[in-house]
Design a protein around this nucleic acid. Structure first.
Lengths: 111, 111
DNA sequence: TATAATCAGTTACAAATAGTAAGTAGATGG
DNA sequence: CCATCTACTTACTATTTGTAACTGATTATA
């Protein structure tokens, strides 16, 4: 009668991806490095949260921050190997969403 | 200079999976139907939130609720076809976590 | 020399969501 | 009548998110 335990690695992965914005940030960095302002615009996240998430992702070794000392300063965020290796996960989510999410489900404001 | 827009279907999928507990609940229902109490124990989620999440997942058509009028009543939650079709996503997350999450990262309380 | 603009954040505070613990309802069993 | 079981609710607190204004370094414009 023992309860089926969840693999701690899987749990750790889910607690990464199961946090708001994190999946989208990784997805947007999948193809090319991006800048802070670019990410806020594309994702629609506030600076406060993007900053927080990027710090966490850096801490987890998924994202790398590169400073280009031009004028004005240009800072690029890119995926590390660990981050890039999430591509198959992203691709499967994409595939699933194409097959199972209806366009109606994506609508939000039609007053 | 147009900003790369995110596919609304993908966004919808991420907003499902990118919510706390949702991924774990789906994962735990992948192999077999489960009861409310079983899920709370296995996942470590409170009754309040499990109840809320299950309702949302039912509303999204991912989970089905079946009442067995025995005594005491037995209620089982199972994945619909839509929910079950997330298996490849779950498998990829599992694979990634096996390759990239270190056992140290899963530790939490070592005072 | 002011004034404004750009980028990458930070800060302060209100609103929404999550967590905790106790309570409810319906059906038995003693 | 009281206790037990399962599947939830409710009331309340704590944490997380969202919003909007602000900082600081550097340079362009009036």
């Amino acid at each position: 009668m023992k309860s089926q335990e969840i693999c701690p690695r899987f749990e750790a992965a889910i607690s990464l991806l199961g946090q708001r914005w994190t999946g989208l940030i990784i997805h947007q960095l999948m193809d090319e490095p991006k800048r802070f302002g670019q990410l806020t615009e594309e994702i629609g996240i506030s600076g406060r949260l993007l900053s927080e998430r990027l710090k966490n992702l850096e801490g987890d070794g998924l994202v790398e921050r590169t400073v280009h000392p031009e004028t004005p300063v240009r800072i690029e965020y890119s995926l590390t190997e660990k981050g890039a290796s999430l591509q198959p996960v992203m691709k499967e989510i994409e595939r699933w969403s194409q097959n199972w999410i209806e366009s109606a489900e994506t609508a939000e404001s039609t007053p």
